[in-house]
Every structure is written in structure tokens, then in C-alpha cells.
Design a binder for these strands. Sequence first.
RNA 1: GGCCCAGUAGUUCAGUUGGUUAGAACGCCAGCCUGUCACGUUGGAGGUCGUGGGUUCAAGUCCCAUCUGGGUCGCCA
Length: 589
Amino acid sequence: MGKFKRNFYCGDLRPEHEGKEVCLTGWVQTRRDLGGLIFVDLRDRSGIVQVVFNPDQKEAFETADKIRSEYVIAVKGKVCMRPKENVNSKISTGYIEVIGKELEILSIAKTPPFAIEDNVKVDESVRLKYRYLDLRRPKMQHNMIFRSKVNKAIRDFLDENGFIEIETPILTKSTPEGARDYLVPSRLNPGEFYALPQSPQLFKQILMVAGMERYYQIARCFRDEDLRADRQPEFTQLDMEMSFVDVEDVIAINEKLIKYVVEKVTGRQVEIPFPRMTYKEAMEKYGSDKPDTRFGMEMVDISDLVENVDFKVFSQAVKGGGCVKGLTIKKGGEIFSRRQIDELGEKASEFGAKGLAWINITSEGIKSPIAKFFDEATLKQIIDKLQGETGDLLVFVADTNSELVMTSLGSLRLYLGKTLNLIDKNKLNFLWVTEFPLLEYSEEEKRFVAKHHPFTSPMDEDIPLLDENPAQVRSKAYDIILNGTELGGGSIRIHDAALQEKMFKVLGFSEERARRNFGFLLQAFEYGTPPHGGIAYGLDRMIMLLLGLDSIRDCIAFPKTQNASCLMTEAPSEVDIKQLNELHIQVKK
RNA sequence: GGCCCAGUAGUUCAGUUGGUUAGAACGCCAGCCUGUCACGUUGGAGGUCGUGGGUUCAAGUCCCAUCUGGGUCGCCA
């Protein structure tokens, strides 16, 4: 440290500090050299204040002549009111300025590749390479501070509610099912590997067996899958687990948690309880298991109306076990030209639909390539069911595969919501989606796989279906959705060893394989297991949404690129042959 | 693995049907300037046009391959 000790932050200075001798430290934002007078905007974490140097203080003035952008300096000076005509109302310290008396350069700086200011137009790869400069920008500092506050609020609430923060291993056991593991070779055990955790799932359940009752952790998780704007290979979960609870208990405490955290960090009011929707309802109305309820335009099923019409695309879809669903685009007929309606059809194809039928309700009557297939009464029934009015455009997807109808039309709904600006960005729409299917059939593996994970409990009344119709079994799983994004999900777990073994059997695990992969859990369950359940949130994603960011990378200090590399450290990189030898690893070239 | 977009000065971009010495803005450097805060003003420096190959008398521009960054589908229990 230099000669002076900081006693004030730049951004904190106000008229009330007039006359105070202060010592400031920070980075030079800009220097404005007027010849006989030098202005320096000094920046620290708190903000910016203007420091003036004039030739009366010869030594300081001469030093001020030398400083440049991003030099690190210490300034001793006096807080003065600015003359009225020189007030800068754009900055919070604009009524005052500091008359510099002494100046010390603590560190010189190369010219940065981009200006340290918000809204700077610079490619993200440049920002990532010089992340330490990017993080100096006020917006990024705000994001990091916000994130820290979220963490603190979470810890405060959970601590207050009897949760214990427990760390679980990073070097752990590879498990099949789910995402690809990151592997770590073992030096002491040739040919064997640890895996980095995809989540602390098994450990938190074991902690329940261990009698911890209420656990949480802000845990780093790793998944070796392709990246997205909201997906990083290493990410942070808020992980929770509770004993002696059912679905309602988990939901209740989590609503309180979210209310507490969001109100604490954003000041915005959150109404609880949150709305709920079953998986079935979500799929049928929104074509998604994470519906964005910030706008309407719900899907309407017209299968019953068109089962026997002449239009074979519709009737055969229904008869073949599928369905026909439609959306009402309010004033869509006025918004979209014929050509744009065709483009909408192309969009629908991209989303997997075989085609897009449409009915345009114009003031001159119905315009539609399919209307001729319906008698007057049926047409009226369809329009009535979709609450179509003059000017509206009704669009339909039909298929023998109901799920395809729902997901493609659901994607089209989202696309329309975005392009037609139907989404109110100021809303915070929390939503629970419940009663997820326990299993789904994997065409790739020719067997049932767990929709959530293999430890999720079936709903009690559906347990008998496990044998006869596994696809019908609903689970005690729930997702928490915010504005159409999955914030987190969890479930009540199976705590009965026999049921767990049955579950493995349905999943096609041999007893041997179940033992090999999860033996420790099954064994633990034999020693007195409380009913338990929990949830895990994608914390980065939650922070991204609360900050209104487009990318998760903007709330992670050192994120990775789409190639899962770090442009600053240049990881991953090749390693010394000596290291490989110690790890008993040979690289295939 | 598929599809789409981008890559030209430190940064953000322009660059015509292929044709002279590749431009602009901001930034940077130097001079002048005592009330600036997007300081002003005068002058100056700065380019393997992502990389490799090809077509051509001639390539930033056309073709092929490849690398990098971003978006997206698959994938993400």
C-alpha cells in the first residue's frame, strides 16, 4: 500500500462531506487535461467522483499530468461544493468534487482493449479474454454484488429455518443415467476414475439417513454436455433436502424462501402461494412442461369436433390416437399477410409439426384452405371453441402423435408471444408444475428411463401401475418455473429399499448393476430411512432471470465459451507427459 | 453430430460488378488550452483483411477446407 490509507469510497461522497479531508483510492476512469487544470474521474467499487488538480499543488499537478486511464492511484484532497454552473446532475457525486492535494501512482496500466464502462460495444470473446477488465465495469460489479446478496439471503433464510449447510465431495463416483460425467483419473488407483458430481443428489439423501433432517448447500455441479446461453459445464445449484416431509411441505417452505430472497434482493413483492399446474395440464394448454404464463394464447383441443370431418389430416390424426389443437392469434389475420402465414407454417415445421392449418376470420368472411372440408355448423363450433372473432387468425396442428402436436404448437405459441410482443417483461410469474410422469420410454435405449431421477417416488395411488403400465405412473416430482424457464426441480424420494429395488427393476437395471452403482445408497436405506424429499435450483439461472440478463455468463465471474474453454486461462490445455504417466493415462492421437 | 450468423486498425464497423497506396468513428501518442465531465483544438502513429489452399493478369471481395466466437436442434436423469 502507498503512503495514504483510504478513508472514503468515491461514490459515497455527498454535499454533507463538504470541507472534509479525504483519502481516496481507485482506478482512473478518465483524465481531462485543460492545460492549466486537470480533471480526473476516479472510480472504485462504489462509483465515480471527480478530482481536480491545479498548479497550486505543483507536485500533485505534475503527477496528474502523467496518469492515464486505468492507472491505480491514491489521492488526498478536500471535498468541495462545485460552483452551481459546474454541477453534473448525471452522476450521484456530481454536486461535489475533490480538490487534489497529494497524488500517488500505485500502479501504471496499459491502455485497456476496451473502455471500462457500461454499454460498451465489444465482442464477448474480448471481454472473456480480459475478464478482469470486463468485471471492472459497473454493470458486472453490480451483477456480482447482486449474486452475493442472493447467496446471503438464501443462507439467512435457511439458517433461520433450521437448515444445516453441509459440503459434499467434488471427487465422487460416476453414475450412469443422466448427463455425461466429467472424469478425474486416480493416481493411486490405476485405471480408475472419480467423477465430478452432476448434483449432490445421493449424498443429500444419505445425509437424511444420517439424521441431519434439513440440509442445504450452494453446490458446484458439473455436466459434460453442450453449452447454451443458459447452460455452463460447471454451474451452481442451491440444493436442499428435508426429512419427514411430503410434497406440500417442500413447496410451502420453498415459496417462503423465494418470497424472502426476491423481496430482499430486488425489493419487489412476491405473492404466495404460487399457482400450480399438473404436467398434464401444462402440456395440454401450453405444450411445455415449463409454461410461460406471462401471456395467454392457450392451446385448445378440437379433436372431438373434427373426428369425422372430411379433412383427412384432422380426422385421421384423431382416429389414429392423436389429436388436433389450435391457437387463436388475436388480430392475427390483420397482422399477418398470406405470405407471413406461410412463413408461420415453416416455423411450425421447424418445431416438428407436419403442417399448419389455418382459418382467417376476415370482415368479408372466412378465408381458409381447409374450410371447404367442414360443414357450416362444425366450422362455427371450431371458431366458437377458440373464441375466434373478426380479425383473428386460428392455426391448427394435427398428428397421430399427440405429444408432437402439443410441443410443436407450444413452441409456436412461444415464438408468437415473443415476436408479437405479448410478453410483459416486468412480470415475475412463478409456477409449480406437479405430477410429472415417473418414467419415459427411451427409443434409443429401448427401455424406460427416469424422467427426474431413479430415486423419485411414484404417487402412492399409481404404485400398482408400475408393473402393468409404467408410462402412466405419475411421480411426486415438481418443478418451479419462472417466466417460462425451469428454475429448479425436486421430488419426494423413495425411502423404502424394496420400492427402490423395484424401481431399478422397471428401469431395466440388473440387481448386480444396481448394487454396483448405488449399492451404498441401498445399503444405507436398510438402516432406518426417514421419508424425505427436496429440491435443487439452478442458481445461476435464477440470478440471470432476476437481473434480466440474456446470458448466464453475465452473472458468472469466469464463465466458459461454447467450446467449454476459458479464454482467459486457456483451459483446457495439454499437460506434461509426466503428469499423464503418473495418472496411468495414454492419450489417443 | 446438424443448421444459422459473425471474423478487416486496440475497439466497433464500412469496403461497389474482383482493379491505384484498404477507409471512418472512438481509443492511443505529441503540441496548445484554468471549469471540463462524450472537454476542445492541431498534428501523428497504428492493418499477416482469422488461417491454409485454389481460381485469376489481379482476391478483403469468388471457390474449397479449416480455426475461433455466438445462437439453435440433438443432448442436458
